Amino acid sequence: MKLQGWIIYNGSLPGTKFLDFAEWIQAAAARKYSQTTIYKNNELLSFLSTDLLKLLKEDMNSLPDYVVFADKDIYLANQLESLGVRVFNRAEVIQNSDDKIASYQQLARQNLPIPKTIVAPKVFTNVQVDTDSVNLAIDQLGFPMIIKEAFGSFGEQVYLIHTKEELVTCVQALQGKAFMFQEFVSSSYGKDIRLHVVGDQVVAGMKRQAANDFRANVSSGATMEAYDPTDEERKLAISAAKALGADFAGVDLLFGPNNRPIICEINSNAHIRNMYDCTGINVADFIIDYILDTINKN
C-alpha cells in the first residue's frame, strides 16, 4: 500500500524558499512512490466545536498517512495530531525549536554544551529598563555579549553588544519581547557549522564563514563549504536534536575554545537547498526514507 502524505508550508510569507523546500520533499517522496500534496497552511483551517474537531477543506476526502510540517503554525500542527495524523516534526518540537529560550532550557536539562545564558525577565512596554538585570548580565557575561531574541530567523534578531550604553538601548528597544543575554563565543566569530541530523545520523554538514559579520548566515552573505564533522561534533548534533525530540533538524554548532563544539541553535525546519548546493547531498531523500520507515514500523 502506497503511503499518502501532505507537505504544509506557510502561505503568507514572501519569496519562494518555503515552497522550494516543500517541492524538494515532494520530489523525494515521489522517488519512493509516495504520493504527496502540498498545502499552504491557510488552505487548512482548524474547526473546533463541542462535538467536532476537523479541518475545513472542501475537496478533502481523507486525512494523510503523514504530514511534513514545513511551517511554525503550531495550532494547525496540533490540530493534525489531535486528528491522529503523524506530523514530522511534531508540534511540540517545532514550538521548542522556534523558541530559542525553550531550546536552551531543553539542552541545559540534558547537560549539553551551550553558551552561558541569562533569560531576561518578562516585562511589558513603556517601563523603565531593569538596571539590576542589566548589571547582573554584565557581571556574569562581560563584554562583548550577545542579545538574542527568543523568536527570529536568519540571524536578524541577534545583536553583538560592546558597552553598557548599547546594552541599555537594546534592552529598551526589546521591551515586550522575550530575549536573553548570552555569552559571546569569540573563538567562533563569523563562523559556524550546520549539521543536518535525520533520525540517529548526521547526513550532511557544511561550514559557514562570514567576512565582515559575527554571524555566519548564508542569507546575510556568508560563504559555505562542505564539512566533515568530527565524531564529537556528530554525537553532539544528534544529542541536541534528540533533546528536543526532533525527527530531523539543522543543528548549528559554534567553535568553542580549543575547537570544542558548542550548540548555537536547532532548526526544526532547516532549509536544504544550500546544503545540496554546497555538498551535493539531498537531505530530502534521507528525510523521506526516515518518515516512510517510521510509518511502516507503526
Rank of each mutant, 00 (worst) to 15 (best):
L3S: 06
L160R: 10
V203S: 03
Q175L: 08
F214Q: 03
W24E: 13
G280S: 08
M1V: 15
A108M: 15
K2L: 12
A28S: 15
F151Q: 11
K164G: 02
I295D: 02
V93K: 04
L44G: 09
I238G: 06
F88S: 03
E166C: 06
L195H: 00
S97W: 01
N89H: 12
P113Y: 07
H196C: 07
M60Q: 11
Y75T: 11
E81R: 07
K57L: 10
A178V: 01
I288K: 00
D98R: 12
T279A: 07
Q128E: 15
D200H: 11
L107I: 08
I146M: 11
D277V: 05
I138D: 02
A249C: 10
Q157R: 13
K122V: 14
K54S: 14
N126T: 11
A27L: 14
A222M: 04
D277A: 12
I138K: 08
P14G: 05
D192K: 01
E232K: 12
R86F: 08
D71C: 10
Q182Y: 03
N61I: 07
A270K: 01
G15A: 10
L112G: 13
G142S: 13
I114M: 08
K40G: 07
V218N: 00
D277R: 13
S220T: 11
D99S: 11
I25M: 15
F154Q: 15
N274V: 06
H196K: 02
F214H: 04
T163Q: 04
H196Q: 08
D98H: 09
A27E: 14
A150M: 10
G5W: 04
K54T: 15
V129D: 05
L244A: 08
A29W: 09
G176F: 07
D213M: 06
A102M: 12
I291P: 00
